[in-house]
Amino acid sequence: MARSYNPPTVWKPFGAFSMVKIHEGGQLVHLKGQVSLDREGRLVGKGDMRAQVRQTLENIKAVLAAIGGEMADIVSLTQYATDIEQFMAAGDIRKEFFFEPYPVTTTVQIMRLYHPDLQIEITAIAEIPRNRFRMPED
């Protein structure tokens, strides 16, 4: 399991993130960037950042669950948004998926993703406790 730390020597986090997340011996996994596609590969939430954030986080949750992980196991997120204001306004949705201690995050605004209707892509690094981790079968 990883633990979070917010040093008093820098600014206090203002949202659902921590300054540092320290590994403590679990299974480290890197998740491919997820977007708001459903199981059949269809776009969810065209023109709706909130719907896209929710679907993207649901996809991350599903990928982790398939190998024994949980959202609380996420150590780090990198978030790419086509509209930073709309993405930040969806912070309440992110708080439905993450609780303290929050993962560290980096959020950047980009011009577009690989499909023009996509507004958000999120990639994650997680540390799953070894007693829960399930190696996928080929």
Rank of each mutant, 00 (worst) to 15 (best):
M1F: 08
R3T: 15
R3K: 15
R3Y: 15
S4F: 06
Y5F: 15
N6E: 09
N6V: 07
P8W: 12
K12I: 07
P13W: 05
F14L: 13
F17P: 00
F17N: 04
I22Y: 12
G26P: 08
V29A: 00
H30Y: 11
L31F: 00
K32Y: 12
Q34T: 06
L37F: 14
R39I: 11
E40T: 12
E40W: 09
R42W: 10
R42L: 12
G45I: 07
K46L: 05
D48T: 04
M49K: 02
A51N: 02
Q52K: 03
T56V: 03
L57G: 00
E58N: 10
I60W: 03
K61C: 08
V63S: 06
V63K: 10
A66N: 12
A66K: 13
I67C: 09
I67M: 09
A72N: 13
I74T: 05
V75D: 06
S76M: 11
L77E: 07
L77P: 00
L77M: 13
Y80L: 15
A81L: 05
T82D: 05
I84G: 09
I84V: 15
F87D: 08
M88G: 05
M88N: 13
A89P: 05
A90L: 05
D92W: 09
R94K: 11
K95N: 06
F99E: 14
P101C: 06
Y102G: 02
Y102Q: 02
Y102R: 04
V104D: 00
T105A: 13
Q109Y: 00
Q109F: 01
I110D: 02
I110W: 04
M111P: 06
R112T: 14
R112M: 14
L113V: 04
L113E: 06
L118Q: 10
T123K: 06
T123S: 15
A124R: 05
A124L: 08
A124I: 08
E127H: 08
R130I: 14
R132L: 10
F133T: 10
R134V: 15
M135Q: 15
